[in-house]
Design a protein around this nucleic acid. Structure first.
Lengths: 219, 219
DNA sequence: AATCGCTGTATTGTCGACAATTTAGTGTAC
DNA sequence: GTACACTAAATTGTCGACAATACAGCGATT
């Protein structure tokens, strides 16, 4: 029997609020008003505070005692720090994946890539968003390190997505990224840990540059 | 004018509670009772819940909806995952420190080490605890990456200390660790990023083995 | 005009009470 | 004896109200 995880109201509000923030409905840098949010989601302030507390854990918002919470601002230094970490952690994930992914997982990953290849052939823009997420997700799982998975999935990914969304980035770099993915999978398949790590780091570094440039020209 | 950060009651209770957990007064794996804690600290359940929420962010405790919070258990797989991450992040910190620490910081760091050398000469056990913390703290600061500093200081360090304390580890490996520290500083001083990273990773890997062995023989 | 201090308002922090859920215990059917 | 319902107690989740703090406006002083 699979235990269905109970879902408290605070849980749902937390997810909704995270979505509103990441998708930019509440823009980066803006202040959060507890009563306003409580009204908006039709819950008490207690659950709003609970949700805010969790968002703080994700580093999506920051709080100052007696003053309040605000959505983390978009800034170049922060982006740099974030991607410095992400590069390291995802590089680590790729290295571990090259070590621990079993034949079945690798096969499934290759299948995913060939689907992406097809979509690109049809000129779909679908790839960039979900496809990329899927790809990184698989490799992360392959690392078998729950803490690492958590750190990236529950923390860093949401913030990086916030940057992408609010900078209006969708679509570009599709084919290039695909080739990078391909190489990474090859490295993993041959259990070349060092190469997998290096290629992944480079892959992340590319998207970092991409976002940094966009952020520079926006400001 | 330096703004003194306001300190809410939840802040203080959070710190106290963290202390009681890390120092083992509330042992790893045990359940937390909100009303009991509220009575103990003489505050309302609201601030206890707030404190628990923050401890969850630090990954010192885990919560299950409608069931409650319990202190993270000590286990070999968790320890392995934790140190896998720590090795990577501290290696990264050392690499960045070799890149960014200025002459003054390096000088100060060397001074710290020579103080440690003196203490060891006098046969002090003082070194292992605070000295080691100081050392890693300095290098972390040298990385200039606030997010990285946060991840380690506010998250990982507390958990690793919990392991050490509750496994009754104090004192050993003093002189060895000192020599490792010495080599790392040398690498940083000569701005040898790769060497600094490798030596730091190895240093962390040693202490990992140490704790793992202790944990194995304890269980 | 700028700064200081006062006052009222808005916002966050804390509390106690109630609701919802889980847990423990007891009895019953098989 | 085991599994299953059922009830009572304990525990967590949510709420509204009050307390403490920060903020905005305004007048007085220089």
């Amino acid at each position: 029997m699979v235990k269905i995880l109970a879902q408290t109201t605070a849980d749902k509000v937390f997810q909704k609020l995270r979505h509103t923030i990441v998708e930019g409905e509440i823009p980066a840098g803006s202040k959060l008003n507890e009563v306003e949010l409580a009204t908006r989601f039709m819950v008490s302030r207690a659950v709003i505070r609970e949700a805010i507390s969790r968002l703080e854990a994700l580093r999506l918002i920051e709080r100052t005692p007696n003053v309040g919470a605000r959505v983390v601002p978009l800034s170049l230094p922060r982006l740099a720090e974030l991607y410095e970490i992400r590069e390291t952690l995802e590089g680590m994930a790729a290295r571990l994946a090259a070590l621990y992914m079993d034949a079945h997982e690798i096969q499934s990953l290759k299948k995913l890539l060939s689907q992406h290849a097809l979509q690109i052939g049809n000129g779909a823009k679908y790839y960039q968003e979900d496809g990329d997420v899927d790809f990184h997700y698989r490799i992360l799982q392959g690392s078998k390190n729950k803490l690492l998975i958590d750190l990236l999935m529950d923390g860093i990914y949401h913030i990086t997505r916030m940057y992408r969304v609010q900078l209006g980035m969708a679509g570009p770099r599709v084919t290039t990224a695909f080739n990078e993915h391909l190489r990474i999978v090859e490295a993993i398949e041959s259990h070349d840990t060092e190469l997998a790590e290096i290629l992944m780091r480079r892959h992340i570094a590319f998207t970092r540059k991409e976002i940094e440039n966009k952020l520079k020209e926006t400001k």
